[in-house]
């Protein structure tokens, strides 16, 4: 709080005081009070007023300056009420009470929303597990009846179900993953087997290199991530998918490269954004813009970096970088 601001704020009060003092002086002069007396009274009154104003100024300044600097330093500004110290002056106390009440009410609101959100998430998780039973049942029925017609549709249903599950997981604050050493080969061949029929139908060849290496991740989450990348490669007309791992001293980089239609340079910076479908989405359809968004979020939560490189009409290369941080390692 700068003195000038304070003085300007008090200006109406000074004007009223000045008018009142002028009236008092006129009054004193009309009653022929001796000039010495008038001077002494005026000086005393002035000293009193200055002291009062200085006191007012300093106690307010100490409160409001702390408030402003706290606010500036906090990266989560809503925590301000926790830092408030109640001042002695009345309007400050009223302010504090009001802020704290508002804060309390906001907390209640937020925790209600949190509860609702986590209830919903729990329900989604439960629903996913339930819906998988009939899907599994149908899959077995198809197999037992020797009917392969529905298998592909069932696989698609399962894929969409997984998307919902992992979307719910990607946004949750709970830690429902386990980081442990996982062999890339194990995860990748699981995905490959799951997509075998479609890959063979479209004559897509797979090439792998260096996947015998271990990375620190959650196998189920990584499996979902690689599954999404494989779906994209299939969707965008690849006929060769090359998956290679590159082991560097401080990290392992997994390249998932296909020779499909590629991504236009203008779209490339946005492919990990929510609901972004871009030119390929328009020309190919069936794109929700969620796949890579979820991939990015999951990678973020697991601490992996994900990036894309592509030349339209030539290739798309999505790379996932796994850290080798010792902190990650379980004992």
């Amino acid at each position: 709080m700068r003195p000038a601001v304070f003085l300007r704020d008090r200006l109406p009060r000074y004007l009223i005081l000045a008018v009142a003092s002028a009236l008092v002086l006129i009054f004193l002069f009309t009653f022929h009070v001796p000039a010495e007396c008038v001077v002494i009274v005026s000086v005393l009154a002035l000293i009193g007023a200055v002291i009062t104003e200085l006191w007012e100024f300093f106690r307010r300044r100490s409160f409001y300056d702390k408030l402003s600097s706290d606010l500036e330093q906090l990266d989560r500004k809503y925590l301000l009420p926790e830092m408030l110290e109640e001042p002695e002056f009345l309007d400050g106390r009223i302010l504090c009470t009001a802020v704290q009440e508002a804060d309390k009410s906001m907390h209640e609101q937020i925790s209600a929303a949190h509860r609702e959100n986590s209830d919903f998430r729990e329900y989604i998780e439960m629903w996913v597990h339930e819906i998988k039973l009939p899907v599994a049942g149908l899959q077995l029925m198809c197999h037992n009846d020797g009917n392969t017609r529905y298998a592909e549709q069932l696989r698609r249903i399962d894929e969409y179900i997984e998307n919902v599950l992992f979307y719910a997981r990607s946004g949750s604050a709970e830690k429902d993953y386990i980081i442990k050493p996982v062999t890339l080969k194990r995860v990748f061949s699981d995905i490959a087997v799951r997509n075998r029929e479609e890959l063979q139908e479209r004559c897509i060849s797979l090439r792998t290199e260096g996947l015998d290496t271990e990375v620190l991740t959650d196998a189920k989450w990584l499996s979902f991530i690689l599954g999404q990348l494989m779906n994209n490669s299939i969707k965008y007309e690849a006929d060769e998918i090359a998956v290679t791992a590159e082991v560097l001293p401080d990290r392992t980089v997994l390249h998932f490269r296909d020779n499909g239609i590629g991504i236009p340079a203008a779209d490339l910076p946005n492919i990990f954004e929510k609901s972004f479908t871009g030119e390929n989405g328009r020309t190919h359809g069936g794109s929700t813009g969620m796949g890579l968004f979820i991939v990015k979020k999951l990678c973020g939560r697991l601490g992996h970096a994900v990036s894309a490189a592509s030349v339209q009409g030539e290739y798309t290369d999505i790379s996932v970088t796994f850290g080798k941080n010792e902190l990650y390692k379980p004992e």
Binding site: L133, A136, A219, W221, F224
Partner: peptide, 10 residues
């Protein structure tokens, strides 16, 4: 299981 969770597997 229908639960895709590494925790269950571990």
């Amino acid at each position: 299981t229908s639960r895709t969770s590494e925790l269950d597997e571990v």
